[in-house]
């Protein structure tokens, strides 16, 4: 087993007075793909926001290579090597495809990823690089969002529901690019609502239910019954 890269311990998060996460523990090792599974409102996206610094949380509750990073500014966290593909893609609508990718390189760390590498991964984007990002299809926009996150050369890539609203064949295409991304040791957290997708692409799985980790284990060893019990609470 490779060494631990990121750890979440006893994480609690709030929206105003409403508590959304209740003592969440999660680990991510180097080069590993971890799936986070759960229904709407289970706290998956909140976890992503907490890790990336968009939501204030206790400093000690999130550690990267042992360093407490909870509640730091998003810009600081991306420079330490955590990047996110946000839910709903959230591209910059006033920008072209290439400009969106360049934004991703604003806090650039040394590494493999640059414009050429992203275009190699998603060749269609090279063709459309001068076009407004809003003119692309949903799947292509998702590719831009992934490419944008890669441009900072993160150690940890957080993918928040990248299959949302896409046709099955497009989803397949997106997920097929994951092995290429993890090829040189990047760790990935894949947040999903789709059980099959999450189970197939990940090595370990965390099932969230009402802001708590209801189940965790090796993806291949968890049974459908276990998962659906943790997922739906039945």
């Amino acid at each position: 087993m490779s060494s631990q890269l990121m750890s979440v311990a006893g994480l609690e998060a709030f929206y105003g007075d409403a508590q959304v996460l209740f003592g969440v523990d999660l680990e991510l090792h180097e080069g590993e793909v971890v799936g986070v599974l759960g229904a709407n409102g289970a706290g998956k996206s909140t976890l992503m926001k907490a890790i990336t610094g968009l939501l204030p949380v206790a400093q000690q509750s999130i550690r990267l290579r042992g360093e407490a990073i909870g509640g730091r500014a998003p810009g600081e966290i991306v420079r330490k090597g955590v990047a996110m593909v946000p839910e709903g893609r959230r591209l910059f609508p006033s920008m072209s495809v290439e400009e969106n990718l360049q934004m991703g390189a604003f806090a650039k760390r040394p590494g493999r990823w640059n414009l050429d590498e992203v275009y190699k991964l998603f060749p269609i984007l090279k063709e459309k690089r001068k076009q407004p990002s809003t003119s692309l299809s949903g799947g292509q926009q998702q590719q831009v969002a992934i490419g944008r996150a890669l441009m900072s050369n993160p150690d940890v890539l957080l993918c928040d529901e990248i299959s949302l609203g896409l046709a099955p064949i497009v989803i397949r295409e997106i997920y097929d690019s994951l092995p290429d991304i993890t090829a040189d040791g990047m760790s990935v957290v894949v947040v999903e609502q789709d059980v099959t997708l999450a189970q197939q692409c990940s090595e370990r799985l965390y099932c969230f239910q009402e802001g708590r980790v209801a189940l965790q284990g090796e993806s291949r060893q968890l049974t459908r019954d276990q998962i659906s019990h943790a997922y739906f609470g039945i």
């Binding site: 990336t52 968009l54 998003p74």
Partner: peptide
């Protein structure tokens, strides 16, 4: 366009 996302990219 997207203040939160811009901050995720490292912009202050």
């Amino acid at each position: 366009d997207e203040k939160d996302i811009a901050e995720l990219m490292g912009l202050n």
